[in-house]
Design a protein around this nucleic acid. Structure first.
Lengths: 166, 166
DNA sequence: TTATATTTTCAGAAATTATTGAAAATAAAA
DNA sequence: TTTTATTTTCAATAATTTCTGAAAATATAA
């Protein structure tokens, strides 16, 4: 397979995966492009490669920086800003976990705790408390494991995976 | 907190969480409603509770059945169809994992394998192979662990979580 | 200071996704 | 069979999200 073809397929796939997981397609594509490019790129490079507008590129680069997975690089004596992303996949997974935990798991846990305060002891209410309690318990467990993963080092992760597989 | 308020908050939160993870809001809300309702519900019940149209309810119920997390219940002597969802949260997580694996992880792994076949040995191509190779390796590991989880029983899961936490 | 390069913003347009509602299809009952 | 209940489909519409492009803001150089 030709490099340009492979590159395009990868960028496309990364964008599609993003969409399926609630991430803007362009955001996924920019990330993919930065991943496979060793050097940092300018907004214009990205606009050109992905055929998107300046506004679009700028907005999604900002989002990626908000997620903490893309960094601005300033080159001495250059006026333009360059962008790059870390190439360590495990660190990437860790950062995405960290953000999703903060953005989605935490709010859901807050609601689950709140609604547990429901009044009454009809079967209906009891069932509601049971289900939301179960969800809350499960979420807490996952959250704890995720926290451990986020704080962990490379070795820990692979050791755990090994344990899991046996 | 009043039951109706708690119920509404929970349904709302479940819909929002769904959206953030690439699942249609109404789908999440229907699932939430079925979760907290012990008895099976008809399409009309759902339309009324969530104030959505028949088409919408029908479409999203079908999607939920495609995901394997909602079941049709036929009541003897009744013409209407009823719908319900399993109340076991761990089993729910397992089923969602199973489907996401099939729908998203598998296609991505296929692409990652394909693009590894890229020709050339320029630094650019070498870097591309390195990054997609790393991604592929990471994905395989996660996929394996997920597979184990899907096939596992309740005890296994909690034992693993315990190990993870210590 | 003024000129120039670069980034950011944001209103409007385009594209995508979700929803409605009524007609068509299906299935059970009479 | 016909009638009635119920589900499914789908074209039209609405809502939401994404994208554009040009103007405004910012920053650097002259």
């Amino acid at each position: 397979m030709q490099y340009d073809k492979a590159k395009d397929q990868f960028i496309q796939a990364w964008g599609t995966l993003g969409s399926a997981w609630g991430i803007n397609k362009a955001m996924g594509q920019i990330h993919a492009l930065l991943l496979i490019t060793e050097e940092a790129l300018t907004t214009e490079d990205i606009m050109e490669e992905l055929k998107i507008s300046r506004g679009n590129a700028n907005m999604n680069l900002r989002s990626l920086m908000d997620w903490g997975i893309v960094q601005k690089v300033l080159k001495p004596g250059e006026r333009k800003e360059y962008f790059t992303t870390g190439k360590d996949i495990l660190e990437l997974a860790r950062q995405v976990s960290r953000e999703r935990r903060r953005r989605e798991i935490e709010p859901v846990m807050r609601v689950l705790n709140e609604v547990q305060e429901v009044e009454g002891n009809t079967p209906q209410v009891e069932h509601f408390k049971k289900v939301t309690g179960d969800l809350s318990g499960f979420t807490k467990q996952v959250d704890g494991a995720l926290d451990k993963f986020i704080r962990s080092d490379k070795n820990w992760f692979f050791q755990v995976l090994m344990k899991l597989m046996r």
